[in-house]
Design a protein around this nucleic acid. Structure first.
Length: 487
RNA sequence: GGUCUCAUGGCCGAGCGGCUAGGCACCGGUCUGCAAAACCGUCUACAGCAGUUCGAAUCUGCUUGAGACCUCCA
């Protein structure tokens, strides 16, 4: 397994190129991913990022790394809105739903947990929340002030971007130049307290109508949005760790500001590899709350998205996502979803077929095939190539089944183990739930037995009546070469 | 307005200078009482125009189109 670790290459957003992955401590990986803000239910686009990092987490685990995967939950913090004002989005949601802030957070945390389970995502090593780490945030802010990169104004604390730029490169991740930014910024409202337009809030003085407030050396207030990630990643992974991930849309300003905060307090970039997952598109445009073109993960499971005429299983949705690279945009369309549904069924069917294959000698290179699975994933987690290679395996399996190819017993065992690993463990496609089928099986055996009797007697009327009746109940009967099956 | 990214066959998507993924759909075939399913085969695309090269979907320039970020967003 060590050899496979050595070959892993990751695209580092910080450098804009792929580079060999070398963890700080051999065999161990520290990974931080920006999680959801719990002021509403996560939509499908949000899920794509988490599913992609779940894939990355799973593959790192499979390679034998000891991974500490930290994904935060934002349950407090003031963000900057379009008017340039600091806003507590959770408090706003709480007022709208006439609940307390923590009720809002809890409500959506429960839903998010449920979604993780449904989409077969491995739980992170820890899911810290911002409210549990106010003290740590305050301490880092104090350190930044001590280092001279932040200043207090009227109970609020701002990051001093101009001062910072004298010592560090603000824009190292996003490639932005601050002097250009100034001219580009469309409006500059409500920024009287800031010394410079690019300064951002580390701590914001409490408003009279804030639902959550905390004590600080600067008076009662709220942490800024960016500081929580710095506090939590530092606490659980150290001042510098291996991988920092998140959605592409967090690159600027969120991740840029995280780097500034870490450099401003500890003097180093928090992560050596920055990874950014791309967006999910609907009709060619990014799925987003503000565009209103979003649907919820549960809606696609029960067919109520209003966009597609049918429902799809979580495995199909996940498989669909795995057919696109995490750094590419992905378009959700009816036709593509249908394609994935059939392709997924074919893959699983092929894997099942492998089990009952006769063995002689191998007519194809099984070791090379398995090697291609690793090669794909080692190349910056290229899941679509992995899927293509899995289909190559399915093709060979079917050839063997039809007697047009052969496989040795040892190769069969190896291939079965490898496919099991890559389909279930790495891609995270959950084994199908057969609970209902086990109850139904004896009944179906009886029904199909009766139908077979009718068929033997050439009583097509009865035979077809049974088939049509079952079809209405959602059970499809297939008359194969070696008997009748159903699903 | 600024910065950046991307344009691949009917659809979704890999590809990162030569060996022209993969899935689905279509079409043809095998099987079958019929049907469905399954399996096999087929289909050869890289927005346009120039250029670099022995050779370009892949590199360069221009044109056109789309998107992201600059505000909260995964």
């Amino acid at each position: 397994m060590k050899a496979q670790q050595d070959q892993l290459v990751i695209y580092n957003s910080l450098k804009g190129e792929k580079e060999p992955f070398v963890p700080m401590v051999e065999g161990k990986v520290g990974m931080y991913v920006c999680g959801p803000t719990l002021y509403s239910e996560p939509h499908m686009g949000n899920m794509r990022t988490f599913i992609n990092f779940d894939l990355i987490y799973r593959y790192l685990l499979h390679l034998g790394f000891s991974v500490k995967y930290v994904r935060n939950v934002t349950d407090a913090g003031h963000i900057t809105n379009s008017a340039g004002q600091e806003v507590d989005s959770i408090g706003v949601a709480a007022k709208a739903e006439q609940l307390q802030s923590l009720e809002i957070v809890y409500k959506y945390a429960v839903k998010f947990q449920e979604l993780q389970r449904v989409y077969n995502m491995l739980p992170p090593s820890i899911e810290p929340t911002a409210t549990q780490h106010i003290q740590e945030q305050i301490e880092i802010i104090e350190q930044i002030i001590t280092n001279g990169y932040a200043y207090e104004v009227n109970g609020s604390v701002y990051f001093d971007t101009r001062r910072y730029m004298q010592d560090y490169n603000y824009g190292i991740l996003s490639g932005r130049k601050v002097d250009e930014l100034e001219n580009e910024t469309r409006t500059l409202n409500a920024q009287d307290e800031k010394r410079f337009f690019a300064d951002f809030a580390l701590w914001k003085k409490a408003n009279p109508d804030d639902m959550q407030i905390w004590r600080s050396p600067w008076g009662n207030g709220n942490p800024g949005w960016h500081i929580e990630c710095t506090a939590m990643s530092t606490k659980y992974l150290g001042k510098q760790f291996d991988i920092h991930g998140g959605g592409m849309d967090l690159k600027f300003p969120h991740h840029e500001d995280e780097i500034a905060q870490s450099c401003g307090s500890f003097g180093c970039n928090p992560a050596r590899y920055w990874m950014h997952a791309n967006m999910l598109n609907v009709n060619g445009q990014k799925m987003s709350k503000s565009f209103g073109n979003y649907f919820l993960p549960k809606q696609i499971l029960d067919g109520t998205t209003g966009l597609f005429e049918k429902s799809y299983s979580a495995n199909v949705v996940r498989f669909f996502m795995m057919q696109a690279h995490y750094r590419s945009n992905l378009d959700f369309t009816q036709e593509a979803l249908n394609a994935s549904e059939k392709g997924y069924a074919r893959l699983i069917e092929g894997f099942k077929t492998l089990e009952n294959l006769p063995t002689t000698t191998s007519s194809f290179d099984v070791a090379a095939l398995i090697g291609s699975f690793y090669k794909a994933m080692n190349d910056d987690f290229n899941a679509p190539i992995l899927v293509a290679n899995l289909f190559e395996a399915v093709k060979q399996i079917n050839l063997v089944k039809d007697g047009n190819a052969s496989i040795s017993a040892d190769d069969k065992t190896e291939l079965k183990a490898a496919m099991e690993i890559f389909i279930h463990e790495v891609l995270g496609l959950a084994p199908e739930n057969t609970a209902t089928e086990t109850r139904l099986a004896p009944v179906m055996d009886l029904v199909l037995d009766l139908r077979q009797q009718a068929r033997t007697n050439k009583d097509w009327t009865t035979s077809d009546q049974i088939r049509d009746g079952l079809a209405k109940a959602g059970i499809v009967v297939k008359d194969g070469k070696e008997g009748t099956t159903w699903s």
